[in-house]
């Protein structure tokens, strides 16, 4: 069976911290059509919150910029979420992804990427200094129907 994209949403908004809750609520509303469990929704909301917070607290640290989210649902129950900014970018992506590494001061745990990695099935980060960062995350939602078939 061919896997195709069955639904897609694009959102963009200014990097104000009040939009963190909007972003995770919007994506959680979009993926709710797959009937995910509460755990799956919590995982997705948390991962989105981390990625958007990175855009606000790091990429656009010195001003307001635009955050772009694209999310796709595929016919096999896979969700792809792409979160993009045109901010400062990172010299060393690998270092930024290490647990406990942070440039955000003592109130930041440095666990954002660790959460994205462990709560989602797949994560890809591409970044260029002064150009911006794109985080692409995937998660497959176990479909209730398929479950009862077993």
């Amino acid at each position: 069976m061919q896997i195709e994209c069955v639904n897609e949403v694009n959102i963009s908004f200014p990097s104000k911290s009040s939009n963190e809750s909007f972003a995770r609520a919007a994506i959680s509303a979009f993926v709710s059509q797959l009937d995910p469990t509460i755990d799956e929704i919590t995982d997705i909301k948390t991962a989105v919150s981390e990625a958007v917070t990175n855009c606000i607290a790091h990429a656009y640290k010195s001003g307001i910029g635009t955050i772009y989210i694209n999310s796709k649902i595929f016919s096999n129950g896979k969700i792809v979420i792409k979160i993009k900014d045109k901010g400062t970018g990172m010299e060393n992506v690998q270092q930024a992804m290490e647990p406990l590494f942070t440039t955000g001061g003592s109130e930041r745990a440095g666990l954002g990427f660790a959460v994205m990695k462990s709560f989602m099935d797949k994560i890809k980060v591409s970044s260029k200094p002064d150009r911006g960062t794109t985080v692409t995350m995937e998660k497959s939602i176990i479909r209730r129907l398929a479950k009862s078939d077993r």
């Binding site: 995770r24 919590t42 909301k45 109130e107 745990a109 959460v115």
Partner: peptide, 16 residues
């Protein structure tokens, strides 16, 4: 009702 790693930072900071 929800927390991300900012909640971890909040707990750690108050602990310290």
């Amino acid at each position: 009702s929800f927390m991300d790693t900012s909640g971890i930072g909040l707990i750690l900071g108050r602990f310290k």
